[in-house]
Computed example of a mutant assay.
Amino acid sequence: MINQRFNMLIKIQQEREERLQAQFVSAQQFYQQQEQKYQGLANYRTEYIQQSQQQGSLGIQSRQYNQFVNFIGKLDQAIQQQGRAVQQAKNAAEQRKQTWLAMQKKRKALELLVERNNFAELQKQLKQEQKNADEYASQQFMRLRAQSLE
């Protein structure tokens, strides 16, 4: 009866663990997407600067230079903002991972408890069987002794 309850608890824990694992995987994928966006912005900034330098070597007007500086500033802001998004996504993924691992630990503890309970029950049954066998042997001995005395 106790094992049935524990088995039900283990099943519930496993279902929770699976949901938490799926949430972790989803958060990890989101983090990777955010990281890719960040890298994309950083790469675009580098390429834009390189192209602008090539064009600038041919000569550039002050208005074009101001536009270039303003655009680089906007790219820098976008990169910083995306960097914060990456860090938040990383933190969220790590938190989900820790929650999942904690649930996994609880489930394993319950399984160990059931295993120990099963072992204790088995030991109890073996003791009872040994006691019954000893009692039977003792009765047999007494009967044989009583018969030999007659």
Results as ranks from 00 to 15, higher is better:
residue 143 R to G: 03
residue 36 Q to M: 04
residue 83 G to K: 03
residue 5 R to Y: 08
residue 125 Q to H: 06
residue 73 G to S: 10
residue 38 Y to P: 00
residue 113 L to S: 04
residue 102 A to H: 11
residue 28 Q to P: 02
residue 140 Q to I: 02
residue 42 A to D: 07
residue 76 D to M: 05
residue 65 Y to N: 09
residue 146 A to K: 07
residue 81 Q to D: 15
residue 78 A to V: 00
residue 147 Q to E: 15
residue 117 N to E: 11
residue 131 K to Y: 15
residue 146 A to V: 00
residue 73 G to V: 01
residue 121 E to Y: 02
residue 129 E to H: 06
residue 84 R to G: 11
residue 41 L to A: 03
residue 17 E to A: 10
residue 47 E to M: 07
residue 50 Q to K: 12
residue 62 S to N: 10
residue 136 Y to S: 08
residue 146 A to F: 02
residue 69 V to K: 05
residue 56 G to F: 15
residue 21 Q to D: 04
residue 89 A to Y: 01
residue 67 Q to C: 00
residue 21 Q to Y: 13
residue 57 S to R: 11
residue 135 E to M: 07
residue 70 N to A: 13
residue 76 D to N: 15
residue 92 A to V: 04
residue 86 V to S: 06
residue 52 S to E: 12
residue 57 S to Q: 13
residue 80 Q to H: 07
residue 68 F to S: 00
residue 16 R to Q: 14
residue 140 Q to F: 01
residue 79 I to P: 00
residue 13 Q to T: 09
residue 100 W to V: 00
residue 89 A to L: 01
residue 132 N to R: 06
residue 121 E to M: 11
residue 64 Q to M: 15
residue 136 Y to R: 08
residue 81 Q to Y: 03
residue 126 L to Y: 09
residue 28 Q to Y: 02
residue 50 Q to E: 14
residue 146 A to H: 02
residue 47 E to H: 08
residue 99 T to K: 07
residue 119 F to D: 09
residue 84 R to N: 15
residue 72 I to M: 11
residue 135 E to A: 14
residue 139 Q to Y: 05
residue 93 A to R: 06
residue 94 E to Y: 04
residue 65 Y to T: 06
residue 74 K to S: 07
residue 117 N to M: 08
residue 147 Q to A: 12
residue 136 Y to M: 06
residue 59 G to I: 06
residue 92 A to M: 07
residue 41 L to V: 04
residue 132 N to I: 07
residue 98 Q to E: 04
residue 67 Q to G: 03
residue 25 V to K: 14
residue 123 Q to S: 13
residue 58 L to T: 01
residue 140 Q to T: 03
residue 49 I to M: 10
residue 56 G to P: 05
residue 18 E to V: 09
residue 119 F to C: 07
residue 121 E to L: 10
residue 25 V to M: 12
residue 116 R to T: 08
residue 114 V to I: 14
residue 102 A to R: 12
residue 127 K to I: 03
residue 149 L to F: 03
residue 111 E to P: 02
residue 135 E to P: 00
residue 8 M to G: 00
residue 99 T to V: 12
residue 147 Q to W: 05
residue 37 K to A: 08
residue 47 E to N: 10
residue 136 Y to K: 08
residue 30 F to L: 13
residue 2 I to R: 13
residue 29 Q to E: 13
residue 67 Q to E: 14
residue 80 Q to P: 01
residue 63 R to L: 14
residue 100 W to D: 00
residue 131 K to V: 15
